[in-house]
Structures are given as C-alpha cells and as structure tokens.
Design a protein around this nucleic acid. Structure first.
Lengths: 199, 199
DNA sequence: CAGGCCGGTTAGCGAGCGTTAACCTGGCGG
DNA sequence: CCGCCAGGTTAACGCTCGCTAACCGGCCTG
C-alpha cells in the first residue's frame, strides 16, 4: 500500500521536519538531518514515509485542512448561535491567531514551501487554501458593507500577511507576552479590515 | 580582484535570478537555468559573479539598502518640510507600497531567502533590515501616543506582513488596478497602526 | 519454540549540483 | 598586423542528495 500506518514516531518526525523545513527551507534540509533530529538516522525514515516529498505533502495538507475545517466550524457555530457576521469574523480572526502563535513553523511552511510540492498535491493544497480564503471573504463582506469582492479578497490576503507576521520575528523573546501579542494582532486585524471597507 | 565590474549583462542576470529565486527558491534553481534565462549557458555566469551565493547576496543587500535609504530619505524630507510625524509615517507607508508593488520578486526574496546567505553577509543584511524597522518604530511612536516600544516593533512587523502580502497572490490579475490596490493597502496599514495604538 | 514482521542499521548507487579547466573568438589599441 | 582581453563555449570533476538494497535483532503470535 502507498500509505503508512500512524504512530507516535511518525508524529515526532513530522514535528521535527516542520521545524527544520521552516528554518532552512525544504531543499535546505537533508533526510539524514531529519532522521538525526529524532534520534534515528537517514533511511530509517522510509519505514514511515514514502519519501521526503510525502512529509511535506502531509504537513501542508494537514495545516490547510485544519485551517479550513476550524474556520468553517467557527463560522457555523456563530451562525447557529445567531451571532452577527462581525462576531463570526472575530471568531475567524481569533482562530487564525491561535494557529499562528501556536504552530509558527507550520504557518511559515504554509505560505513559503507550497511550490515545492508535486503538481497533484499542490492543487489539493491550493484548493483547501482557496476555500479558507473564500470563507473569510464571505464573512467579511457580510460584516462590512462597502467591500467589493476583489477588494475583499485582497484585504483578506493582507490580513493573513499581518497575522502570519509573528513567526518571522528573529527572536520571539522580543515580543510581548502571548496574550498581549494576540490582543494586539486582533485589534490590528479588525482595524485593517474596517479601514479596507472605508470606515 | 574579488568583485566584478558593472554592466548591463550583470543587471539582466540579477533581474532574471531574482525572478527565478522568488518562484522556486534559491536551492530550487540551478545555475544553468539562470544562464538559460539570459541566453547564455551555465558557467558563463562566473564571468560576472563569484558564484551563486554572490548573486543572492547582491540582491538582498541591494533591496535592504534601497528600503532603508529610501525610508530615511522620506523621513528626512518630511522633517525638513516641518510636516507631522503622522505625515512622515504616511510617506513610509507609500514608499513601501511602491516597492512591494513594483519589485514583487525582490520583496519575496527579502523575507524568504535570508537564511540561505553565508553568515557574514546575513549579518550585514539583518543590520540593514533592523535599521529600517527601527526607523519605522521611531516614527510610529511619535505619530501615535500609546505605543510601547515592543508593541510598536510587533506592530511594524505586522504592517510589513500586510504590505508584503500582494506578491503572494497567485494571479495578480485577481487584484484591482494598481492604484486601487495601493490605496487599499495604504488605508489598511494606517487602520492597523491606529488600532495597534489603541484608537 | 519457531517464524514473521516491525523498525532499525550500514553500504552504495545514480543523478544533479556548483564550480573549475581548457579552449575559442571577435573587437580594439599600439 | 599582432596580441590581448572580455565574454563566451563544452567537458569534466567532486560532492551531496534522495533513495534502495541487504542485513539484523527483538517481540508478539500460533
């Protein structure tokens, strides 16, 4: 079969691989290094993954799915509770911030290494990403009046860039506490969206 | 000597190299490809550059210098004309937007491939980047009252993420016109900064 | 207690990479 | 007219990389 079974080793490998890929880029990390990071060496990885590409694929598909599924769930919950579109949008913002602050390496990979995937998998990831964007675009347009669809899409991309900026900071120690950072990003995201809609 | 002379060929190579590096990553592009992109093949590049690393170095040092120098000039001009800190900040925003929209490939490299530089050059580029950030931080804190220095730094990084988001769009054709995009980004940047300062 | 399989090991292969070497050519200055 | 040099060429080298092959020990099962 083409897929391997699950297991704690597998997860450990994925965690270390995501860290290394984020630090030095997909092509900049060798399989021996990934193996060494989990205490085994080199070709033993092939007992768990079909190859180096398969690791990146699994990481990117995983993160895109989690983003989209988490987003859809938050919006659904807000709607079922009868909350406003503005509140649903805030739920999306908070969810994305949690993700960006807790899984910095994955966020980095997510918008940096997509082009290193083989064609078929790349399409799959792009589809998930597009669905996530469209979810935001819909909610944002309902929350703010004067947003055309192209403008909303550009604005959403810009907000993603804003929210994903923290992983790029060289020393995270230079940041305020996690809660302060989250609050700051949340305020900025809403400020940016409000301004995009033209006050 | 270690440096090569200037020349149109050199610039042509740098332009194509930046495009290719941005598309597929530094490690994902071979020297033969870069050569082919300018109509010569492979090792002929070594008549113009000491090596592949030297091309990336020159690109990153160049862009970081242009950003910092351009920013300092704008702030200086604003101060000499007696304009407010808010206006100086707007000048920084506009300048950065022009850069992001006109040199998309370079902006991408700038925050994606820094780690592929040899240690010495990387320090040099980081120093330029830090100076640019500090320029923004100073102006932003003068323009808005309630911004602590760590918060201002995080906010500035976030705004960079926002402004640099457009190159990541798969098809730029999905964007509004250049002027509309610039205006949108400008509004969003100021909205985000205002919100960071706490209204 | 025998056997299979799970998850390791080391050795090695084949391709691709950046780089160097050796050679060539056309234009320009003395 | 001669020689030099700038700017190309192709061949080849050495290294690194992803991956496969061959082998092996421990544990669980029949």
């Amino acid at each position: 079969m083409t897929t391997h079974a699950a297991g704690p080793r597998r997860l450990q490998i994925l965690r270390e691989a995501s860290r290394l890929f984020a630090e030095r880029g997909f092509h900049g990390v060798g399989v021996d290094e990934i193996g060494a990071a989990v205490g085994i060496s080199g070709p033993a990885l092939y007992r768990h993954f079909a190859g180096k590409d398969a690791m990146l694929t699994e990481l990117l598909v995983g993160i895109s799915s989690r983003l989209r599924d988490g987003g859809e769930q938050r919006v659904r919950e807000a709607e079922e509770a009868g909350r406003s579109a503005a509140e649903a949008l805030d739920a999306l913002v908070r969810g994305h911030i949690d993700f960006a602050l807790d899984d910095r390496a994955l966020i980095t990979l997510h918008d940096r290494e997509l082009d290193r995937l083989p064609e078929a998998e790349r399409k799959r990831v792009r589809r998930l990403q597009r669905q996530y964007v469209e979810l935001w675009v819909g909610v944002a347009r309902r929350a703010y009046g004067g947003l055309s669809e192209p403008a909303a899409r550009a604005a959403v991309h810009a907000v993603f860039g804003l929210l994903n900026s923290t992983p790029r900071l060289s020393r995270p120690s230079a940041l305020p506490s996690r809660e302060e950072t989250a609050a700051l990003l949340r305020r900025m995201a809403h400020g940016a969206l409000r301004a995009a809609a033209g006050e």
